[in-house]
Write a protein that binds this DNA or RNA. Structure first.
Lengths: 102, 102
DNA sequence: AGATTGTATGTCATTTCTGACATAGATGCA
DNA sequence: TGCATCTATGTCAGAAATGACATACAATCT
């Protein structure tokens, strides 16, 4: 965003900044959300590489299509625990999980 | 364990093997438990390096001494989520967390 | 247009996790 | 010995996550 646009928005009463600021996240919360997002993306990649639909993966994991969708979207209702268990079930190694987190 | 001892135990009716086998864990469950144990150890290391007691850390995290103890012991009742949130609160970077997981 | 396939989103009963508390080790010190 | 400090373990009410379901959305067909 260039300076001019920012000034225009600010003058018009808008606040500018990061998503984290907008959502009032602390530094730690932001790191947590980002870390979770990385795992979400990794899960989606692995599923697509395996040519599985969300429904097929759900059956494999004894979960549901809607929960898989939420996992891949980084929905607040899904835990890192579930993401990691899912990745492990898909054959992801610790090293690969670590790489995704970095 | 040397061969002789294993034979003795086996002959006496004991089964030998890994903890995972004893607890009837699947391969994925075993990986999950190991990964969690790594984070537990990392948390304990960081706390001790910071010269904090469990009680002090508990106050910092708005948790309780007993939960910190359970975290560091890898108790089944604690989630990876809580471990990661705690590590982040202690200033651990994503890179360091990734390293611990590897 | 309608039909099919795959993904997203809202809701909810049940399950699991969490902080808090009590209390039991464990270690050191007077 | 008793006393203080730190850690471990069991329990439980309240909070959060889970799978399941319905349904909406999107893309691709005939």
């Amino acid at each position: 965003m260039n300076k001019t646009k920012k000034e225009r928005l600010t003058n018009a009463g808008w606040k500018t900044g990061t998503v984290a600021e907008f959502l009032h996240l602390t530094a730690e919360e932001e790191l947590y959300v980002e870390l979770k997002a990385s795992l979400s993306q990794q899960l989606k990649r692995r599923r697509e590489q395996s040519h599985l639909t969300q429904e097929e993966l759900a059956r494999m994991l004894k979960s549901s299509q809607s929960r898989i969708a939420k996992m891949e979207k980084g929905d607040p209702s899904v835990s890192i625990d579930l993401l990691i268990k899912s990745l492990l079930a898909l054959g992801t190694t610790r090293r690969e999980i670590a790489k995704a987190i970095t």
